[in-house]
């Protein structure tokens, strides 16, 4: 069966709708609770992982590199779950990395600013100004993340299959609409889309495995064939290739591996300056 990815700003009933759709369809709900699992599996600091998604900033914030690292692990974990089908995912940014997969129904929930501020006030017990300020800050952090990592504008409606305006349609009906929409034959999985998903899973897994040593590695997969492109200084290329090989081979599902090295001009230039 299909997968549903729900995207919404905070306080747009995203969690509620996702959980109810999951219950109605007998799908699994995959939300931020996965973050704990991811943190345990790769020994990552949970608050930073949350901050990397653009939610609840930590004191020191997250550097772009750290963010890419944390999200590489998160993507690997989320895609692994999505590949099992019958999942409703929300709050994990999944809609960004399953863009091209046809059996994922991408839904965007829209709620107007005042309603979100009210929800924030109730939840956090703060006054209107403080709630608005906090909400604005969070939206901005998430928009930054979306641009920095995925080069996308999260609230661009053309990214989604379905956009539901919750000012006009109540939650009950929104749940029905989403549950009904995903039944359409066009969202059925097929060899083509499953393969895309599998390739994506494998690529992110290899990338996560490589990240701590080779953060600049680009990974793509095509039916078990994995291509890693990694920058290296010319004289280190042999070493780098075998290092990447040793790491990437550990990932299950890698049938064949090709490592391509591109000249690291920056590093070479930096070395020649020394």
């Amino acid at each position: 069966m299909s997968v549903i990815a729900i995207s919404a700003w905070s306080h747009c009933h995203g969690e509620e709708i996702a959980r109810r759709v999951a219950r109605k369809l007998n799908f699994r709900s995959l939300g931020p609770e996965l973050l704990g699992e991811v943190a345990d599996r790769w020994q990552l600091p949970l608050p930073k992982l949350v901050a990397a998604l653009g939610k609840q900033q930590t004191l020191l914030g997250v550097t772009p590199r750290e963010r890419r690292r944390l999200l590489a692990y998160l993507e690997a974990a989320v895609l692994e779950k999505l590949a099992q089908d019958k999942v409703v995912t929300w709050g994990l940014g999944a809609h960004f990395y399953v863009m091209g997969v046809s059996h994922v129904l991408k839904v965007r929930l829209v709620l107007d600013w005042e309603a979100r501020v009210r929800a924030m006030m109730e939840e956090g017990g703060m006054n209107e100004a403080a709630a608005a300020k906090a909400l604005k800050k969070e939206d901005e952090a998430r928009a930054r993340m979306a641009h920095e990592i995925y080069r996308k504008q999260e609230d661009d409606p053309t990214l989604y299959d379905l956009t539901i305006n919750l000012m006009q349609i109540d939650i009950e009906q929104a749940v029905e609409i989403v549950a009904e929409a995903v039944q359409h034959k066009r969202f059925k999985p097929m060899t083509f889309s499953r393969k895309l998903m599998k390739d994506q899973v494998l690529a992110t897994q290899v990338k996560a495995e490589l990240f701590s040593r080779h953060p600049d590695a680009q990974v793509s997969a095509d039916g078990g064939q994995v291509l890693v492109t990694v920058p290296a200084v010319r004289r280190d290329q042999e070493k780098k290739i075998s290092a990447v090989r040793d790491l990437a081979r550990k990932v299950k599902g890698v049938a064949s591996l090709k490592v391509e090295v591109v000249n690291d001009f920056l590093e070479e230039a930096a070395e020649s300056m020394r």
Binding site: G100, R186, F187, M190
Partner: peptide, 16 residues
């Protein structure tokens, strides 16, 4: 993606 979805909607069994 659009072509694949169109085919499925029109009743294709699979799309490769």
């Amino acid at each position: 993606m659009s072509l694949a979805r169109e085919a499925m909607e029109k009743g294709a069994f699979d799309f490769i």
